[in-house]
Design a protein around this nucleic acid. Sequence first.
DNA 1: TTAATATATAAGCATATAGTTATATGTTAA
DNA 2: TTAACATATAACTATATGCTTATATATTAA
Lengths: 115, 115
Amino acid sequence: MLKSKVVVERAANVLKLLGDKTRLTMVAILKQRECCVCEFLEVFDMSQPSISQHLRKLKDLGLVKEERRGHWIYYSLNSQSDLYGLIEDILEHVPVQTEKIKQIEKSNPTLRCGC
Amino acid sequence: MLKSKVVVERAANVLKLLGDKTRLTMVAILKQRECCVCEFLEVFDMSQPSISQHLRKLKDLGLVKEERRGHWIYYSLNSQSDLYGLIEDILEHVPVQTEKIKQIEKSNPTLRCGC
DNA sequence: TTAATATATAAGCATATAGTTATATGTTAA
DNA sequence: TTAACATATAACTATATGCTTATATATTAA
């Protein structure tokens, strides 16, 4: 299969971003399911601002997109990005994040307010 | 095709290493051809110790191996590594480093001593 | 053994990064 | 309009990173 090429510098920027355990896990989760910040908060042992900052970096490179729905802002992988193919290929070497997805769905943080 | 999986933390470490323009270019070059330090010195605008330090990081993770031949130490990709498949897949998204290879072969630093 | 050469290591420095806490913004519902 | 909530941004700090220069090590040839 012919892969879309990315100039070295841009590719390095992407890899540096994904070269963080938290962000790589986020992207792996987003491959399976969109998520809002409060859902990520359930599975990462860090503050809400940290999570927002990681997501912002992913967004700045165009790897993820966001969509507000009421209180929540849902993040998802941006399949329109020229980097999407690279992301997909990398994720094939990373285990599926089933445990974390279960954790999210069990705690179901967006249901707290009864909506 | 079934891809060999790498735990998230290890994958993140690899991506972080490749998330540097110099190292990503080195690996792309090594995909085409083994190189010694003095050859890399021809194509990267930095000191010899910097180049050695980058190669050491790649070696520490097992991505490259080295082989001494006389004065020179030749580096090559370690195709035995469990990370090799990931590396290959990433490199499919990075342009082939033909220019740099030409540059190396033109200057031919290992011929200086007339061996 | 000594000189020349290729590479590695050590030490130091400037910048980048990932986290924190405090605060601001934006949305919804009373 | 105000309160409650989700998320974002700002400011700060500790550590990691990538480079430099100086020096050490290893190999070869005279």
